[in-house]
Design a protein around this nucleic acid. Structure first.
Lengths: 245, 245
DNA sequence: TATCAACATGACACTTGATTCATGTATCAT
DNA sequence: ATGATACATGAATCAAGTGTCATGTTGATA
């Protein structure tokens, strides 16, 4: 014996404001939702009630994530609606909220995904470089190739800057930290000239990001190898004319 | 003798979709709204009916633009509402639509404003450099200073990428073109090593943009001179260790 | 001081789309 | 089978703004 009334008494419906201060107004602990742990590691350990507990659930979650990557990557965060994402994923709207608290949440997750995939890609590409400079050249090329192959993820990361600056910063900070260490190590072995590794790391990232945008996303026709080589040449040798002698 | 009826018969209300294909669905000529002409020049010559025709109008327009710069710069495009902008500008909501067709329009205008101001700033900063490399160093520092002094405009430009990719591209393309010319000229005089000027230009812009974000916007406390110097050192001399003798 | 563009106002009609929730369906251990 | 738990559904709700328009107000010009 049950009631046939559907969706009548609402209750505390209250739209959350996107971004800024009171990001997730109510739940205190949710604030730390897996950031500190997962960003550098592989497996997903979610402390909230949102993580799927079965294989079926994980599959659905991935379907939604994939759909979101395409939708947000192509239309942008604002234009990509949850309904479009769920339609694309072939699940009901409500299913979305089984795995994500809101649209921001998927975006955050996608930034992490990008971080993991890119890191893996770069690690492989650099694996058999014999020097830092060689790694630099290979890494740059690999980055450009990754950008061209994953324009959606690429855009998602850039857009995260405006949706949740903190993930965006964390994303770059992570890469910067690693980069910096690598440069310092290379200084130590005398492979490169001593210099400010921190600033060099950010400068090199910026260089890669812009070229990735310009030649990976924007202009997808030109071959990437010459681009990487030309940029590498500047990085390695500098603009200054070397005196003949 | 007039009627007291207010706002009754609506009519063809029809929300426009932001961005993409049918950017401004109805009016054909509006499509070309001043892009080709104004982007590089100073004065505002607007072919539509939106341009103010009196001094009073121009003043109001500027008030709105200033308010929009702050609102969009701080809250981001999505969060910045037209009503908040007009409130900040101390004008009525309807006044907004006297000068701009929609929120996108102001953003576009702000990107142009950024372009003009930055160009002027850089031109002045570079004015008395005696070589391309000196100009490079001075320009980089000036850029970082500009970014730190104009965080709102800086963010607006970055966000334009997702609101109207074409203005964003035009913005960078303009700078790239100039930059490229300067590099080619410097090659000609033997001030710098020959190389791919196009790619160098984009690489250098990317480097500046990232450092501007990192040390101009994100971390506003560190002094900028050392940053510019360190980055310049890498640009000029390169990472490669120079063999002694 | 009459006239008329240009400028300004602000209430509100109208959409959009995020989020919730009452209800259903798989799946699996016992 | 039974029950429990996880997963899934999608119609309904409702806050948030955008863009419009009927009506005032300014101020320059004749």
């Amino acid at each position: 014996m049950y009631h046939v009334i559907r969706c009548s008494g609402r209750k505390g419906y209250q739209r959350k404001k996107y971004r800024q201060d009171v990001l997730f107004g109510h739940s205190g602990p949710a604030e730390r939702y897996k950031y500190d742990s997962v960003i550098m590691s592989e497996p997903d350990s979610s402390p909230t009630t949102l993580a799927p507990k079965t294989n079926r659930g994980e599959l659905t979650r991935q379907k939604i994530l994939d759909a979101a990557e395409r939708e947000i990557g192509q239309k942008g965060f604002a234009e990509a609606s949850v309904s479009a994402i769920t339609a694309e994923a072939a699940v009901a709207q409500g299913t979305f909220y089984l795995y994500f608290r809101n649209k921001e949440d998927v975006l955050r997750e996608l930034v992490l995904r990008m971080g993991r995939r890119l890191r893996r890609h770069l690690t492989l590409a650099i694996a058999d470089a014999n020097s830092r400079l060689e790694a630099e050249r290979a890494g740059l090329l690999a980055f450009l190739e990754f950008a061209r192959a994953n324009p959606n993820l690429y855009r998602v990361v850039e857009e995260s800057q405006f949706v949740d600056p903190s993930v965006y910063h964390r994303y770059y900070d992570d890469f910067a930290r690693n980069y910096r260490s690598a440069l310092i190590a290379a200084e130590g072995t005398g492979e490169i000239r001593p210099g400010n590794a921190e600033i060099r790391a950010w400068a090199l990232m910026g260089l890669a990001v812009m070229l990735g945008h310009r030649y990976g996303i924007w202009d997808t026709s030109v071959p990437l190898k010459p681009i990487a080589d030309a940029a590498f040449d500047m990085i390695a040798v500098g603009l200054e004319r070397r005196d003949e002698r």
